[in-house]
Amino acid sequence: MNPVLVVFGYALVTALATGLGAVPFAFVREVSPRAVAYANALAAGLMLGASFRLGEEGTAYGGVPTLLGATGGVMFIWGTQRWLSGREVAFGATAGLAARQAILIVVVMTVHSFAEGVAVGVAFGGGTTLALAITLAIAVHNIPEGLAITAVLRPRGVIGVLRCAGWSVLSSLPQPIMAVPAFLLVDTFRLALPYGLGFAAGAMVFMVFVELLPEALNAARRPAVALLVSLTMVAMVLFQRHL
C-alpha cells in the first residue's frame, strides 16, 4: 500500500482515539460549581503533564528553538484570548465567559495537534515498519487529551458527551493532515519540530495558568485542587512517556 495512505490512515486512527477521552464524562451528571472546579483542575493537571512531555521532546531536538516556540505559543493564546474577550461569542448553548473558555481550549488543543502531527510524521520518517506500535502509542496518548478537552467543554457547554467527543476528534484532525507532509519531508520538518513542540507547550501552559487554575482555585478548596493537579500531572507525564 502507498506509505502516504498508511501514515494518513494511522494518524487518523490516533485522532479518533482522542474522542474516547469524552467517555468518562458520559457517567458524570452533576455540574455543580465545585464539579466544574474539579474538572478544571483535572484538565490543568493533564495539560501541564502533556506540556512537560512536549518540552522534554522539544529540547531533545534543541533547547533554544523549543523556548522560542513556547514564547510564540504563549503570545498566540494570549492574543487569541484578548481577541475573544472583546467579542460576543457563543458555543453550544453557552455564551460569555464560558463560551470564550470553551473556544480557547479547542484552539489550544487544535494548535497542539499540528505539532503532534509533525511529530508523528517525523516518527514515521524511518519507515512504516514500526507504524502499528507508534500508532497505538499515540492513540493511547491522545485519550487523556480528549479527557482534558471534555473536562472543560462538558461542564460549561451544556453540550452533550457525543459533541464533546466530536470536538475532541476535530481538535486532533491536524494530526493526520500534518503527519503526511512531515513524513514526506522528514528532514525539513525535523528542523521545525522543536519550534512546533515548544509552541504547543507554551499554548497549553498559558491556558492552564490564565484560565483553568484561577477558576479551579476560586470554586474549590486548595487541597482538592492541589491534589488533583499534582497527581494528574505526574500521572500524565509517566503515561505519555512509557506508553
Binding site: W78, R222, L227
Partner: peptide, 30 residues
C-alpha cells in the same frame, strides 16, 4: 516533584490571583 507541585498550587498560586491580574500571574510564572 509531588511535594513541589502540591505546595506551589496550594500555597503560592491562590493568593497571586487575588493580588494581581490573571494574565500577569501566568506570564511571570511561565
Amino acid at each position: 516533584v509531588g511535594a513541589l507541585v502540591y505546595l506551589l498550587i496550594a500555597e503560592l498560586l491562590p493568593e497571586c490571583y487575588h493580588q494581581t491580574g490573571h494574565t500577569s500571574v501566568a506570564l511571570v510564572t511561565i
